[in-house]
Design a protein around this nucleic acid. Sequence first.
DNA 1: GTGCCGAAAGAAAACCTATTCCGAATGTTC
DNA 2: GAACATTCGGAATAGGTTTTCTTTCGGCAC
Lengths: 345, 345
Amino acid sequence: MSQRVPTVRDVAARAGVSVGTVSKALNNRGQLRDETRARVVAAARELGFRPNTLAQSLQSGRTYTVAVITTDRFGRFGNPLMLGVEDALGADRVSVFLCDTRDDPIREYHHAQTLDERRVDGIIVAGRRKQTRAPLAVASGVPVVYVIARSSDPSDFCVTTDDVGGGVLAGRHLLAAGRTRIGHITGPERFADPRERAAGLQQVLDEAGLSLAGGQVFYGEWSEDWGRRAAEMLLHAAPDTDAIFCGSDQLARGVVETLRDRRLRVPGDIAVVGFDNWEPMAAGCRPPLTTVDPNLREVGRVAATRLLDMIAGTPVEGGVETVPAWLMLRESTGVRLTEPPLGSN
Amino acid sequence: MSQRVPTVRDVAARAGVSVGTVSKALNNRGQLRDETRARVVAAARELGFRPNTLAQSLQSGRTYTVAVITTDRFGRFGNPLMLGVEDALGADRVSVFLCDTRDDPIREYHHAQTLDERRVDGIIVAGRRKQTRAPLAVASGVPVVYVIARSSDPSDFCVTTDDVGGGVLAGRHLLAAGRTRIGHITGPERFADPRERAAGLQQVLDEAGLSLAGGQVFYGEWSEDWGRRAAEMLLHAAPDTDAIFCGSDQLARGVVETLRDRRLRVPGDIAVVGFDNWEPMAAGCRPPLTTVDPNLREVGRVAATRLLDMIAGTPVEGGVETVPAWLMLRESTGVRLTEPPLGSN
DNA sequence: GTGCCGAAAGAAAACCTATTCCGAATGTTC
DNA sequence: GAACATTCGGAATAGGTTTTCTTTCGGCAC
């Protein structure tokens, strides 16, 4: 038995035809007698022939590969994103290289070089924070789509989440639930994401003629502990608070814990809304957490779809495409729905 | 300006040499004058030449690509694993294809076919549970390493976590902390992982002549809610329990919540040990959770290293390689260490 | 100075695998 | 028997690497 992988030549020999004919037979091209075609197909099957994609790519100039470069250390935010990317790419039999830069520009550069040499059809660059970054150092002509972190080159295309809209959703939902004294606890002020979420909430409050409970946004770290401490601070500053919008589900967990320690009922006394819809965190909370889902899977799907467009030659103009968030309703805001709600924007 | 990617031919023309000479110059092979070599290198740089990996692979038979097939829907367990895989692969400039089967055998089969055609050098198949699965349907000759879920073919190689050892670590640690009435709350009995963890604990108890608090292992779902309910049950059955070993950090979170509701101090009254060392869960807990780290990153590293061995032609005999777990000490067991401890087995 | 040997340098060609284009051989039709 | 269609072989091609072969030159003996 031969350990060598069979090639068209082997198939040709077995079927008693030339290599060109094998190719035509297997790809349904050219003019061939049915009998010949069948003989070739049979020979290929018998040998277990699988065409070498490398050779095909060399010929066609397309590799049917796409790379996802992430700075996220394979963090949790990348998971739903990848799911969306595969949703869009899977249908096209496009394989995906996953590269993690670990936030190191050198590693990113090397990955970019390697991908260049591999002649990937396109690249998705995913940052985990909304910021502006330098364009990827890759050969001109290779389509690149940026996700969440946008490129400093305005002609590049970027897909991102709608954090302002997420804040709006949370705010509107709390107003609709009859809350009027709404506080906000969130992550570091130096990041754009928490600032935007806060802006969304503020916008809703302004429209309703309300002001923020506690008189300020409680910016801090992305930790449960800050959630616990900030909740104490908020309740000290504004004991009559009846709702808290949290910039992440982790923060919300901490907030809920403080509320329970203080014998405050959720949502009875205070309604809580999280952000991320990070399933194990949000669903495991007691009570389960109503939370803004930034729709990362859809972000990934859109990014991959646009990338495929660009690869196909469709011109995609630069700029930012924002994917609407939606609200996952659970018990922490006291509203129960049976329909899975899709947020409008 | 030419949009076409430069080839060796372009470089050769610019340097005034033949294509063969270009190859030799850029790869430091053959006999060339220093002056010639320098001229070629300069020409390549000026043109921004990047060798086409596809052509190189076609020639050499090696693609320097490896695939990771996961059934995990890009779940959290895959993240540390991927990190370990990249640790080992990155040094070799090996790129990794990430394929998610979403637990669908058809998708797995298609991925396997595609990878075959792409002539990947090797494949890592990662399941998320300890079970036996059918070998991957891939061309013979392609090295495959199984992770956690092992292949039914005993000649295949598998790397997995040490769940029994993890249970032993947790048990010994609790004994060392002076606890003697230790309960165990964990996931579904039908899975091997929780059974093994329980067996590890039982082994330690047997050695010490102790028995399980509550008289049984509390098997249930992998949810915080089960942790809360099971803790109630355990405390009802054995009110003098002074330690609880949990089969996951999520369960531990639920357990700790119940304990706090009952005004029991952790670790004062009851020490708690988790499993997974899932950072956001374990560190966010109040108090932070001592937990068994199954060392998934190391599992990934070992799997990739062995795969590279197999690719290099080193014979790797079939069987299971078990990676020791270690204990992450935090406050929920009352012991504080400054050194990051590595678990021995 | 001439002739010979061998080493050095680089050109030329073969090769890796599959696709595609061109043309040759065969068969069909009027 | 000429025009045309059908069927398939052969060669060129993609972009590199590697092997083979040729040219050139230095060194040395006579």
